[in-house]
Simulated assay, not measured.
Amino acid sequence: MFMVKLDNNQLVPTIIQNATTNDVITLAYMSPESFELTLNNKQVWFFSRSRSELWHKGETSGNFFNVESIHQDCDSDTILIKVHPTGPGCHTGNETCFTKELTDLPEFTSTTQHGTILEQIFTTIEDRKLNPKKDSYTSHLFTSGIEQISKKVIEEAGESAIAATKKDKDSLIYEVADLFFHTLVLIAALNLNPTNIWEELEKRKN
């Protein structure tokens, strides 16, 4: 009987590889339940860490991962699934998530929990941009256009400032969260991402 070691979150990292080209498509995470669904349905299911729920890859985009074979590594703590994708494998529309070639030694930084939350939210925002949902507020924002999104950013910035002048800390937290969210939508609408902001902030930290 095979054993698979789970991490502290009861998940196992899973590498997805194109069975035809051998290109690595992405790295995601599976729970025991998503693994069972993958085995039974012959299509890949993940566990979304940002939404804390099962995720049938392709359910909204139509870009499914049809399973050819499943393997585990020698330490039994990583899964490799060879698939036949029915469309682009990455939410950006690329065939693979690994599109940035590193030719020099990069600057290594530690991702804080809070930075991770913003990036997880941004991933969902981009998904709503590429795969609109009728009842999604985020999808509605993209449909309304950059001018309307910009107005929302201005509105939330003003409400944040008003809460601060009133020394209303609870309202300030709420309004700044709204400001962060709508700003992420705005940069997604302009095909930017949080990394562009982090790089600019790195220049200012001194």
Rank of each mutant, 00 (worst) to 15 (best):
Met1Gln: 02
Asn9Leu: 00
Pro13Phe: 00
Thr14Met: 01
Ile16Asp: 00
Thr21Cys: 06
Asn22Pro: 03
Ile25Gln: 00
Ile25Glu: 00
Ala28Phe: 07
Tyr29Gly: 07
Ser34Val: 13
Leu37Trp: 07
Thr38Ala: 07
Asn40Cys: 05
Lys42Leu: 12
Gln43Asp: 09
Trp45Ile: 01
Leu54Ile: 05
Trp55Glu: 10
Ser61Asp: 08
Asn63His: 14
Phe64Ser: 03
Phe64Ala: 04
Val67Ala: 07
Ile70Gln: 00
Asp73Pro: 07
Asp73Phe: 05
Asp77Phe: 03
Thr78Lys: 07
Leu80Asn: 04
Ile81Thr: 02
Lys82Tyr: 11
His84Phe: 10
Thr86Ser: 14
Pro88Ile: 01
His91Leu: 09
Glu95Val: 09
Thr96Arg: 04
Glu101Asn: 10
Thr111Leu: 15
Gln113Met: 14
Ile117Gly: 02
Ile117Phe: 13
Arg128His: 15
Asp135Arg: 05
Thr138Gln: 00
His140Trp: 07
Ser150His: 06
Val153Leu: 12
Glu159Tyr: 10
Glu159Lys: 06
Ala164Lys: 14
Lys166Leu: 09
Lys166Asn: 10
Lys166Gly: 02
Asp170His: 13
Asp170Phe: 10
Ser171Met: 10
Leu172Gln: 12
Leu172Ser: 08
Tyr174Ile: 11
Glu175Met: 05
Thr183Glu: 02
Leu186Ser: 08
Leu186Cys: 06
Ala188Leu: 04
Ala189Gln: 12
Ala189Gly: 13
Asn191Tyr: 14
Pro194Gly: 10
Ile197Glu: 08
Lys203Met: 14
Lys205Cys: 08
Asn206Glu: 14
